[in-house]
Design a protein around this nucleic acid. Structure first.
Lengths: 195, 195
DNA sequence: CGTCTATTTGAATGTACTCAAAAGCGGTGG
DNA sequence: CCACCGCTTTTGAGTACATTCAAATAGACG
């Protein structure tokens, strides 16, 4: 696995010197998952920050009734972590699981802290990461408050272009907060609207 | 207006030296609002970071149909800003308005940058602010995906204790993503369940 | 080919909204 | 002090959005 994607992901935000790049990449541990493999289970301590190089992960929560909800999908070029568990060493509320066979890098908490101490650019990068994440989550909340399921589905298709062809409708429904049956009905309605 | 609340809000996360406190407070500008006054209108550039000393603000979005959605309430001891607009000088998507007569401090973007450059503790503070904000927003998304309106109302009462006595049901409904009529019905149902 | 899971379909149900009207409540001015 | 105004809350009937449950169909994988 090469480092091009993860390095360009960071340097798009803030430049890194060659020495910093070498130092950072020496701390990364590569990993692979098969579809349905677990990366983090509910109740685990999330000890790594993950970067997806290829494939797709889901971050989920399943309630008492057994209904799964998807917080986010992480495809290639996305970072993913259970932040609360990672920062505070608390049992994770969410689980992270592979939706497709996935290649990833992981960075342990101690190495995460290390790069932030040694390389100021990483502080800037992480700041922007969480700030942008905050902004994106606010947008999602507004959408779930003010849009119908049909409109949210349309937004999903724009936000994750092509992803609807890669993952099951059951998962898309779990992301939108509706049942798979209802999503199926919406898609049927859309199909007939353009015939 | 005194600085006790805002200083304790920060030093709860990270200690500040007396000189740093003086420097920081010298950059704060106090302000007051009457109920229904605007702090930021949709389309404005959000040029300040705000801290509520007393009273209550709402951060909202109103869609084409005229339905208002509440992103968050900021009561005493809360910070509030339209982050995207503030950081990137873009027209704000949200508006911020007083729900009660409100006393606040504002910190301009240039002074915000200044304190972050001069006082490392502020970098730490802001990091934690956005990280914790991110964690809280994820929780809210999970709730809106997996809970009924009734359950979300119950969570609201726990998360903002006493606030239901201070603001209108119309606003609580806009926070929960339901109509005021439906919230009224839920409350009636609750009342009769305990009689 | 058989098994397992995902998707589709349909009927019945429940959750939440719309619209309209009435009642309550707080502030303001006469 | 009271009458009125504007806004919020309540109530109810009808409707729309979304779920549940069950069964049939289609796809994916060993």
């Amino acid at each position: 696995m090469n480092f091009d994607l993860i390095i360009s992901n960071i340097t798009r935000h803030t430049p890194l010197e060659p020495g910093e790049i070498n130092f950072f990449t020496s701390l990364l541990e590569p990993g692979q998952l098969l579809r349905k493999d677990w990366l983090v289970r509910t109740g685990d301590i999330c000890r790594y920050d993950y970067f997806v190089n290829k494939g797709c992960l889901k971050v989920c929560y399943t309630n008492e009734k057994g209904t799964e909800s998807v917080i986010k999908f992480a495809t290639e070029n996305w970072w993913v972590v259970d932040l609360d568990s990672f920062l505070n060493h608390t049992p994770s509320f969410y689980y992270i699981q592979a939706v497709e066979d996935t290649d990833y890098f992981q960075l342990s908490k101690s190495n995460y802290d290390l790069v932030h101490r040694k390389i100021p650019a990483f502080q800037k990068f992480s700041n922007e990461r969480w700030q942008n994440g905050f902004i994106a989550l606010q947008q999602r909340i507004i959408q779930s408050l003010s849009l119908t399921a049909e409109e949210r589905y349309s937004h999903f298709l724009n936000k994750y272009p092509g992803l609807d062809q890669r993952i099951s409708q059951r998962l898309i429904a779990a992301y939108l907060g509706i049942t798979p049956e209802f999503l199926s009905m919406l898609r049927k309605k859309w199909a007939t609207e353009f015939s």
